[in-house]
Write a protein that binds this DNA or RNA. Sequence first.
DNA 1: AAGAAAAAGTTGTAAAAACAACAAGAGTGA
DNA 2: TCACTCTTGTTGTTTTTACAACTTTTTCTT
Lengths: 221, 221
Amino acid sequence: MEKYLKLLSESKIFEGVKEEEILKMLNCLSFKIRSYKKGEYIFLIGDKISSAAIVLEGTVHIQKEDYWGNLSILNEMSEGDIFGEAYSASLSGMAENNAVAVKECVILYLNLEKILTVCSSLCDHHNTLIKNIYRTISAKNLFLTQKIGYLSQRTTREKLFSYLSDQSVKAKSATFTIPFNRQQLADFLAVDRSAMCSELSKMQKDGIISYSKNTFTLKEI
Amino acid sequence: MEKYLKLLSESKIFEGVKEEEILKMLNCLSFKIRSYKKGEYIFLIGDKISSAAIVLEGTVHIQKEDYWGNLSILNEMSEGDIFGEAYSASLSGMAENNAVAVKECVILYLNLEKILTVCSSLCDHHNTLIKNIYRTISAKNLFLTQKIGYLSQRTTREKLFSYLSDQSVKAKSATFTIPFNRQQLADFLAVDRSAMCSELSKMQKDGIISYSKNTFTLKEI
DNA sequence: AAGAAAAAGTTGTAAAAACAACAAGAGTGA
DNA sequence: TCACTCTTGTTGTTTTTACAACTTTTTCTT
């Protein structure tokens, strides 16, 4: 427990709340902490979800496999991100995607409905928590909308370019590192890996970008 | 003002709050109501967004045009939906997409930060409001994730089929009506309209679906 | 350090999409 | 009702992608 308190205090959810306060708050909320091994499923499509999951450590992919086995990574959650919160608030309450630990993960489960019911000013920092959760979910919204922007591009080159441009802007540098390997990037952009690789080569040949491994540089045109 | 109170009481945001309470609450919050004509821009990329917008009447498209003029409808907001809330909570606070009224619209602006700061139990229904907002944003999240599921499909047929399947499930019927015309559906699914039309024809020929105008029926296989 | 395994890159081909240009139909207003 | 506009559907061509099969490079393991 103690070893996770530091993690919690560093997470976006508990930003601005001191460790001793977090402990008090957790006691007034339903919570559970569990760790997962690399590759392990956190939940599966159809699972009943009653609480939100917060990534304390590691990385989680929200993904879906279609009938023919094509994998789509719908979203990547990393430290401080909330996932599954939408299912717990939905009518059916059932997961519509799989959540998989892509590396060793530590997940905190919280009953958000309980959090949102402000408990007679029992904890001073309840408000902070609500604001933090709101910001996190909003940020996720923004991310999803951005991703839709990439996927809405017609060609692989346009998809790559819009994604890489955004990463460059986010890094405030023409050179930046992305958190995906080639297969993951292809899944994220919903294109074929080998086709994407060859498109990357072409873009490099055309002098639009240069790259090595996961580090890319956008060129002036 | 009075004419909007009924709208507000019917909105998802104020669900469970009586009209007289809403009036009280609005007084303790910053708010603004404005209407827009069909085709009018509600905000543009780069605009500074300080409050969340709630659709009281009409429909809004969140969209983006790329360098070459391709339009992408990233999201459709209808009555009760919140939009722009992510920008107001983000660092830059600037809109990253355009918001356009696709029909006559009435928009309520609320300062969400103010809402989330629970005001010394001044209004009893503040909690209800917070929960409603959370549910709305979560639902939006779910919608965005679903859309990413459609866009992640490789072929136009798969995109159409995954979208139509979901609509069928949502309508709890093999026959259902979609809220898009062909051009809007094509923009939504990020495909070429004419190519999509011909794919729809093929799917009908293949006996997978049948349709007339915006009403579709999924066939047993 | 060697061998195995995983990831990345390459190429050719068949399939699919974008694009363009046009035809047909539905809806609207004078 | 006629002309005009908007929407939908059709077809052929060009471009792009998926797919498959393979090579090269990198990373991991013992």
